[in-house]
Amino acid sequence: MKHDPYTYITVAVEPEHDPRVSVSFRTADLHVSALVVSETRPHLFLETPQGLVSISTTGAGPVTAGDLSVAHELFQAAARYLADCERLHTPDHDQSKQADPGEKAA
Rank of each mutant, 00 (worst) to 15 (best):
A71C: 13
A12C: 06
P42M: 02
G59E: 00
V70N: 04
A77K: 05
E16G: 05
D67I: 02
D92T: 05
D100G: 07
V32F: 00
T64Y: 00
K97H: 05
S24M: 14
H93W: 12
I55N: 00
L68P: 00
E16C: 07
F25C: 00
L88I: 02
F45A: 04
P15V: 15
E103G: 06
S56F: 09
P15I: 15
E86N: 03
A83E: 14
T57M: 01
Y6R: 10
T64V: 12
A71H: 04
K2N: 12
V63P: 00
F75T: 11
D94T: 07
G59W: 00
Y6M: 08
E103Q: 11
V63H: 01
H3M: 15
H43I: 06
D100Q: 09
T57Y: 04
E14S: 13
I9A: 13
G102A: 14
A106F: 14
L82P: 03
P5V: 02
D84F: 11
P49G: 03
P5K: 05
A12D: 11
T64C: 06
A34M: 09
R20Y: 00
M1H: 11
R41A: 07
L46K: 04
A65F: 14
K104H: 13
E39P: 03
L30M: 12
L35S: 09
P49F: 07
D29Q: 15
A65V: 14
Y8M: 08
D4Q: 15
L30I: 03
E103N: 09
D29L: 10
Q98R: 07
H89Q: 07
A99E: 14
A99K: 14
A71W: 01
L44T: 03
A77G: 07
F75K: 06
I55H: 01
G66V: 12
V36P: 04
L46G: 01
D84C: 13
P62T: 10
A34I: 01
E14T: 15
R80I: 13
M1A: 11
P42Y: 04
V32M: 00
P42I: 02
D92F: 09
A34L: 03
A65I: 14
T10L: 08
